[in-house]
């Protein structure tokens, strides 16, 4: 009787001793990597892994995939043994360029995106965006004549895709492709797939504000994405959204711009007015794929609210938050703003 009492007591004590150790052994640790060498922005991966070896393996996948898509969608540089957007642009007006399946897939998707966004998110707008890029760098407004001339060379129908031979032809020698509104989202999806295939069960990717999350955190809580009113007005919105297995992209006028005579000139150029619009200070889109959220947030930024609402309603499970320049906030029904 006494013996069994001590036996049980010893068992309880040894179990209680093991408990913290056991949870410690299984404990998933949070790791973060940030790189600044890709897509002209930052790239951060936050993940949970059981060992630093596991983290290192996943981090090397992150870095190599990041490098791969950065090179593939780069319009400024050429790389050895890589046929990328630079290669396609350099051949504009001359001949068909044989591209990898992946680049062909990207350009095909981008042409489709041009159609569904009514041209508001367009891969063929390169001639105009390059004029504005110069303007943003020098903080001077572009010459109207140069802008008008550039606008003659943004016709999407001058991209000829041959799906049998996997070639791309730009039939206008002065046109150029620009993946600025699509590339980061596209890469986030692809990198996310690679990490998932490598067995990573819980991570958050942030490619310059394009968030993509997979799985839930070890404690069961979701990954959260934030939307904040960039105007920072009194009582302004500060929204946190469950983005586990979803993507969140925000397009805003507060990035990469300059102010002249009270007008903000930023990097999102409307293909219709040929200049940056200032109806909104930011527009965020939440949906399944980062490519779609990236493309739609750009499109919605330059569209009227009504046109944007119609577009977002046509996309399955997509939500949006429009923050007007004056601080007014409109959301889709699936989002409850908390102030």
């Amino acid at each position: 009787m006494k013996k069994s009492f001590y036996g049980i007591l010893a068992l309880i004590i040894s179990l209680s001793l093991c408990l913290p150790l056991a949870s410690c052994g299984k404990r998933l640790k949070k790791y973060t990597s940030t790189y600044f060498e890709h897509f002209d922005t930052y790239a951060t991966l936050t993940l949970f892994a059981s060992s630093s070896e596991e983290y290192k393996t996943l981090d090397s996948i992150f870095k190599s995939e990041l490098e791969k898509y950065h090179q593939l969608l780069d319009i400024y540089n050429q790389y050895e043994n890589v046929v990328n957007l630079y290669t396609v642009n350099a051949s504009a007006g001359t001949e068909a360029v044989a591209v990898s399946d992946e680049l062909f897939d990207f350009i095909s998707q981008a042409v489709h995106t041009h159609k569904i966004t009514n041209g508001y998110t367009s891969i063929s707008i390169g001639a105009v965006t390059s004029v504005w890029k110069q303007a943003l760098n020098t903080h001077t407004l572009p010459d109207e004549d140069i802008l008008a001339e550039a606008a003659k060379h943004i016709d999407i129908s001058h991209i000829i895709l041959d799906s049998t031979n996997k070639t791309v032809t730009l039939t206008d020698s002065k046109m150029s492709l620009d993946a600025g509104a699509l590339g980061k989202g596209y890469a986030a999806d692809k990198i996310g797939n690679a990490l998932r295939d490598a067995g990573c069960e819980s991570f958050l990717l942030d490619l310059g504000g394009n968030l993509k999350a997979h799985g839930y955190k070890p404690d069961g809580s979701p990954w959260l994405g934030g939307i904040r009113d960039p105007n920072e007005l009194e009582g302004s919105l500060d929204l946190s959204i469950n983005i586990s297995d979803r993507a969140l992209s925000t397009s805003g006028s507060y990035h990469r711009g300059f102010e002249l005579d009270g007008t903000v000139y930023h990097h999102i150029i409307s293909p219709y007015t040929l200049r940056p619009e200032n109806i909104f200070s930011s527009v965020s889109v939440i949906c399944r794929d980062s490519y779609v959220s990236d493309a739609l947030s750009t499109a919605l930024f330059s569209m009227s609210l009504e046109d944007g609402q119609m577009l977002i309603a046509s996309i399955e499970n997509a939500e949006a938050v429009w923050i007007f320049a004056d601080g007014k906030i409109v959301t889709t029904d699936g989002i409850t703003p908390t102030t």
Partner: peptide
Amino acid sequence: KTGKVTEMRSVVCLPNKVTVT
């Protein structure tokens, strides 16, 4: 301009390659 750091939002300075999380 980003304001305060929250769990959902890091503060990033691209030119200086600084992140605050």
